[in-house]
Nucleic acid binder design. Structure first.
Lengths: 275, 275
DNA sequence: CCATTTGTTCCAAATATTGAAACTTAGTTT
DNA sequence: AAACTAAGTTTCAATATTTGGAACAAATGG
């Protein structure tokens, strides 16, 4: 859609290079120099050199035949380290396995990254697990169970920022398509201790989600159990809530025991160093 | 310029930033500033600013409590795009599924990245698939089936470089622990069209692997079927070779049809721009 | 074949990076 | 408790790097 990519930039050359990476990744397909140049804030020569450097470094991959760029394999290597060390996934794994076994439904583990939902692990009851295709995927926060569960437990500042950065695209006629509607739901979530997604993102898909919190109520992530309206109704799904909540609590305790690093509550970038 | 350590560097600021990312990732655990400084070629203030910028960008994650850095979640997001767009995984998926079903054994899909084996997908017959824990993982090339299968089909230059960059650590007493032994095996592999790993990396683990090639014999990756000596012998495993080869061929054809980007045969970086 | 688009290289000017050293915390020892 | 030590952070002038307009080359197409 319209919204031009957030030129978060800053951080000198590194920030700019990251922007280029994001831009290439955002295309979702092999992209040519000219296409990038159109959307880019950088002049021709500058963008060109960035692409060259990133390609040399393996952060981008270049197809000389078609003259196109795609995100590079070095990212996969680095992400493996990130996933292992910085995500909740390794800690949560056994709990997800158990929850998946018990419910037989799809289970998601998510964290919040730049006001978006970042899925870091998944259990799919029926089919074999789809690898990366789900872990690493991002989704909207305002219309998913895990997204709302996480936002509800952000502190004031982070919440304001997160809420203001949602797109509020109306995916279905049940989507909460305004900041006020979202805020109202977040209040409710805080009251109940869990979030629901009532076909707000995809028709026929419903879910319940609970936040993962430290003892100091710092939000680390969320887990959810998803079902389809064809096979079950909300009553059935909500029956799992106590179980989901308990698992979320357990993960929170484990995470804290492992002295889990501060989650990037950090929505957007605050740095003073202006140009 | 001899076998310096990793400092491939070059590419100005971007290359340096990538080096820092690698360094943090290499620790495999939350790492403090001073620890990085010890191993770093950069002066204190420089390294400090790199870490700050990378953290601001979400490429690193910082735990203020423990004052430690880990690879950041932004990498996971980017890697998802890389995996989807630049790896063989999406193309190979149905073939891996089939091969896994037929053999009932562990199946790997790998690509070559900086002279190392990068596993991009995996099927594990018995247990549920372990996600990222395998995709994104790197391993040695000189003592794994997929590694040798891939190296055997590199062109002269790339092969020389790859062969010279192996560590030749003797994991088991069957490990090919020298360049000459490796080269001899690669010749054999080229002759037979497939590679074997006869407990060269892990005792009790054997495998057969075939390269994935384009019609122009450009090497894109490799697949393997792995077994354990406890459950089977080499005779049984080699019976799968024709099947593995056929699947590799199919993937190669598909990949070419999709006009798959040039694989980073590119071992190491050649840029003249010294520091 | 010329026109046009797309990709690559040059180079002086502008700017960001550099790193020694000073400074600030936090933790430890005397 | 004061002094010491170590770890992390900031400063600032020198310097190397990035910058980007414009020229150049290589493909594409009419």
């Amino acid at each position: 859609m319209g919204g031009d990519n957030a030129p978060v930039a800053g951080d000198g050359t590194i920030g700019k290079a990251c922007d280029v990476l994001d831009q290439v990744a955002a295309f979702g397909r092999p992209v040519r120099f000219a296409e990038l140049l159109d959307e880019s804030a950088f002049p021709k020569a500058t963008l060109y050199r960035f692409l060259q450097s990133l390609t040399n470094q393996g952060m981008l991959s270049y197809d000389p035949e078609r003259q196109t760029y795609t995100p590079g394999m070095r990212l996969v290597r680095l992400a493996h380290a990130a996933w292992t060390q910085s995500s909740l996934a390794p800690i949560a794994r056994p709990f997800l396995d158990a929850l998946s076994r018990e419910t037989g439904e799809t289970v998601h583990l998510a964290q919040l990254d730049s006001s978006q939902v970042l899925y870091v692990d998944k259990r799919n009851a029926t089919q074999p697990v789809e690898m990366y295709s789900q872990a690493g995927k991002v989704g909207p926060a305002y219309c998913t169970g895990v997204g709302k569960a996480m936002m509800a437990y952000l502190d004031q500042d982070a919440l304001d920022k997160a809420v203001s950065q949602q797109s509020y695209h109306r995916f279905t006629d049940k989507t909460l398509a305004s900041e006020s509607a979202l805020r109202a739901d977040l209040d409710l979530i805080r009251q109940r201790g869990f979030a629901v997604d009532d076909e707000e993102h995809e028709p026929g898909i419903i879910c319940v989600a609970c936040p993962i919190l430290t003892s100091g109520n710092r939000m680390l992530g969320a887990i959810s159990v998803t079902g389809s309206t064809e096979r079950m109704d909300f009553k059935q799904l909500e029956a799992w809530v106590p179980r989901v909540r308990r698992v979320a609590e357990q993960i929170g305790v484990e995470a804290q025991a492992w002295r889990f690093p501060e989650t990037r509550t950090n929505v957007g970038n605050d740095r003073m160093q202006a140009t």
